[in-house]
Computed example of a mutant assay.
Amino acid sequence: MSASSDIFSDVADRLLSIEAEMRRIGVWSSEPPCAEALASTQPFCIDTLAFTEWLQFVFLVRMKVIVEQGYGLPDVSGIAPMAEEYFRVRPEPGEGLARELEAIDRLISGS
């Protein structure tokens, strides 16, 4: 197995862990947002989606395509701080999700 396929395998595992954690803490949605909300040009679709919606319907979807198609991974990722900020004022326990996002940030950023 090449280093490239190893990283894709590791990223795929982390994506599944992120989904599992989102389901565990009750922030996984069965209904996608409307197309207009997904078309936002703002970072994290901050003007149209909750962070967890962006994570589920934008980030996870795009990353799954990248992994499945073998496209190049982003050069850097810094999603964990956004999760920490989002969950700071939320009733759901976001520490586990933030840890999963830190792990994928490290994988993608190569540190």
Results as ranks from 00 to 15, higher is better:
residue 20 A to Y: 06
residue 4 S to Y: 06
residue 62 R to A: 07
residue 55 L to Q: 05
residue 67 V to E: 01
residue 90 R to W: 06
residue 15 L to R: 01
residue 19 E to V: 06
residue 7 I to K: 15
residue 61 V to W: 00
residue 69 Q to M: 09
residue 20 A to D: 14
residue 4 S to L: 08
residue 3 A to F: 07
residue 13 D to T: 15
residue 7 I to M: 12
residue 106 R to F: 06
residue 8 F to C: 06
residue 42 Q to R: 10
residue 50 A to T: 05
residue 76 V to F: 14
residue 39 A to G: 15
residue 89 V to F: 15
residue 40 S to G: 06
residue 71 Y to K: 11
residue 71 Y to I: 01
residue 88 R to N: 12
residue 100 E to V: 02
residue 50 A to V: 01
residue 18 I to A: 02
residue 69 Q to N: 13
residue 66 I to Y: 01
residue 36 E to N: 12
residue 34 C to W: 02
residue 23 R to K: 15
residue 18 I to D: 02
residue 84 E to G: 14
residue 13 D to K: 12
residue 85 E to D: 12
residue 18 I to S: 01
residue 96 G to P: 07
residue 93 P to Y: 01
residue 99 R to C: 08
residue 92 E to M: 10
residue 90 R to H: 15
residue 100 E to M: 10
residue 48 T to N: 07
residue 20 A to F: 01
residue 88 R to F: 07
residue 50 A to N: 04
residue 73 L to G: 08
residue 66 I to P: 01
residue 88 R to H: 08
residue 96 G to F: 03
residue 38 L to P: 03
residue 65 V to W: 01
residue 56 Q to I: 00
residue 65 V to E: 10
residue 13 D to W: 03
residue 102 E to C: 08
residue 9 S to F: 05
residue 70 G to C: 03
residue 81 P to L: 09
residue 25 I to K: 05
residue 65 V to P: 04
residue 104 I to H: 01
residue 65 V to Y: 00
residue 4 S to A: 13
residue 24 R to Q: 13
residue 65 V to N: 04
residue 94 G to Q: 11
residue 105 D to H: 09
residue 102 E to H: 13
residue 75 D to R: 13
residue 40 S to Y: 05
residue 90 R to L: 09
residue 51 F to T: 10
residue 100 E to R: 08
residue 6 D to R: 13
residue 44 F to L: 15
residue 99 R to M: 08
residue 74 P to S: 10
residue 72 G to Q: 10
residue 62 R to L: 07
residue 11 V to L: 10
residue 24 R to G: 07
residue 47 D to N: 13
residue 77 S to C: 13
residue 8 F to H: 14
residue 44 F to S: 00
residue 84 E to V: 13
residue 70 G to L: 04
residue 56 Q to H: 04
residue 103 A to R: 10
residue 66 I to F: 04
residue 78 G to H: 07
residue 98 A to Q: 05
residue 63 M to W: 00
residue 93 P to C: 09
residue 106 R to D: 12
residue 97 L to S: 11
residue 4 S to G: 06
residue 33 P to F: 01
residue 67 V to F: 02
residue 36 E to F: 11
residue 76 V to D: 04
residue 24 R to H: 10
residue 101 L to C: 05
residue 101 L to R: 04
residue 16 L to P: 03
residue 96 G to D: 13
residue 2 S to W: 04
residue 60 L to F: 00
residue 85 E to A: 15
residue 42 Q to T: 12
residue 71 Y to G: 04
residue 66 I to W: 01
residue 85 E to Y: 08
residue 36 E to G: 11
residue 52 T to M: 03
residue 76 V to I: 11
residue 85 E to M: 14
residue 80 A to V: 11
residue 93 P to Q: 13
residue 6 D to F: 10
residue 58 V to E: 01
residue 66 I to C: 00
residue 106 R to Q: 12
residue 87 F to N: 09
residue 9 S to L: 12
residue 29 S to E: 12
residue 99 R to A: 14
residue 32 P to V: 04
residue 26 G to Q: 09
residue 13 D to Y: 06
residue 38 L to M: 14
residue 72 G to R: 08
residue 37 A to I: 03
residue 105 D to L: 07
residue 55 L to C: 13
residue 19 E to R: 15
residue 67 V to L: 02
residue 75 D to N: 09
residue 39 A to Q: 10
residue 49 L to T: 00
residue 31 E to F: 06
residue 40 S to Q: 05
residue 29 S to D: 12
residue 23 R to M: 12
residue 58 V to W: 02
residue 53 E to W: 03
residue 102 E to D: 10
residue 27 V to S: 06
